[in-house]
Amino acid sequence: MSVPGTHEYHWQSLAQLSSGRVYHTLSEIGGQMYMLGGCDAGGRPCPTLELYSPEGDRWIALPPMPTARAGAAVAVLGKQILVVGGVGEDQSPLKVVEMYNTEEGRWRKRSSLRETLMGVSIAVKDSRALAVGGMGADLLPRGILQQYDLRKDVWALLPPMPTPRYDANTHLLGNKLYVAGGRHCKRPMKAFEVYDTECRSWTMLPLMPCKRSYAGVIWDKAGRLSVLGGLRHGGGHQSSKFTKNVNTFDTNQGTWLKSEETVTMKTMRADFAAAFLRGRMVVAGGLGHEPSALDTVEAFHPQRKKWEKLAPMNFPRCSASSIVIRERLLVVGGVNQVPSSAHEILYVKEEEYL
């Protein structure tokens, strides 16, 4: 399969947010993008819900969430958006769960989680939400696996994950829920486990090759997981150790590819936008060894086995939220010294997006 050339990828600036935003959550229903919550420039969680309208290139304010929150987990169940946990106005984890009906345009309170949690990871299987892990009010990670039934409005406990963690990456592939990485307190985890939704059992997979936080995570259409870049060592900016390493796990073989089979990125970076777009892995922005946020973008060519530079982002930033909708990558908000109101799209086609 041929992939687009580097000159075919275009960035276009879209309507900016009304104010800078970070730690917000993006969701899609029917090709439309919704933005939920997040923190403002003062670090306060917001209750806002906004819909981006490409027709008028504008943001439309919808009824706000009953509970202001940042870093919430979100699941789409039909035409409804389930919002789970996150951090509330008092900077503590939340247990409250709310649901927005996009057809009725209103919020409903739903059954709460069993305890307050932030950093929950969520996936949807057969119209049920699977919420994995999280961090409690005691700042300790959880191994809990909870399943939400929309019809009954109940959370059921499923067998817990072997390795407690929060901020893990989850991906549903058939009947298998893969859970990669995550953190324990501030320490990154190498744990990699899979839950079989039919057998209701966990299996431990080969550990991730290296410990890192704020890495990019991309699942391609062949069922391969790639973990890209990230921060190998914390601390201040001067002592931070960024990496450009790429590790890829093949779910068919059940193994991580050997290092000679993978290709490192051109630029060391962490906390960047990452996506699979038109047959290529794409990474954009983030933090590196430069004193400010990056605007550089690169894409992997699978046939040439090399990373190639794309046009830079219009707005350098890290900690941005991103989502792929109809083969287009939207990058919203983030941080460049202060929370950013930038909103731009990367797409492959000759005519303009709007």
Rank of each mutant, 00 (worst) to 15 (best):
E103C: 10
T264Q: 14
V74R: 15
E98W: 02
M1F: 11
K266H: 11
S18E: 11
G56K: 03
K221W: 09
R304A: 14
D167R: 02
S2E: 06
M135K: 13
C199Q: 09
K309E: 11
G88S: 07
A273D: 00
R317L: 01
L145W: 01
A215P: 07
G85I: 07
L117V: 01
Q303K: 10
A320C: 11
P54D: 08
R328L: 00
A137P: 01
M65F: 03
G37V: 08
P188I: 02
L294S: 00
M161W: 02
E89A: 13
G174H: 05
V96Q: 12
T267H: 03
E352K: 06
C185G: 12
S53M: 14
D167N: 07
S127R: 03
V22Q: 12
G56Y: 05
V227C: 06
S112V: 02
E115Y: 11
V132Y: 01
G182N: 05
R21S: 13
E55I: 11
H233D: 07
A284M: 07
A215T: 14
M281F: 15
I323C: 00
I325P: 09
T251Y: 00
R128H: 02
S92F: 04
I345D: 08
V22T: 15
H289G: 09
W11M: 01
Y166M: 07
S18D: 10
L177H: 11
L150H: 08
D153E: 12
N101A: 10
G133V: 05
G42C: 05
Y178N: 01
N101R: 08
C210V: 12
Q146Y: 04
R187D: 10
R108N: 08
W155F: 05
S92T: 10
I144E: 03
S13V: 05
G333R: 06
D220R: 15
E198S: 07
L225P: 01
F276E: 10
S341V: 10
D153S: 06
Q80L: 11
H7T: 15
G181I: 03
A131D: 06
H343D: 06
P291N: 12
K125N: 06
L157Y: 04
R232F: 05
M65D: 11
E89Q: 09
V96H: 10
V132A: 00
W256N: 04
L77H: 13
P4R: 13
P93W: 12
S340R: 14
W107E: 09
V74W: 15
G42M: 05
D40S: 13
L157M: 08
E55L: 06
S201R: 07
L231T: 04
M161E: 03
P162M: 02
G31N: 10
V331G: 04
V74K: 15
I325A: 08
P162V: 01
L225A: 04
V76K: 00
G42E: 08
V96W: 07
L228C: 04
F276C: 08
R232S: 03
H10L: 14
K79P: 09
H301A: 05
W155R: 02
L177D: 07
S111D: 09
L205V: 00
R232W: 04
Y178Q: 00
P302W: 15
P162W: 02
R21I: 14
C46N: 12
S341P: 15
K309L: 11
K79L: 13
P291V: 12
V124Q: 03
L157A: 11
A191I: 00
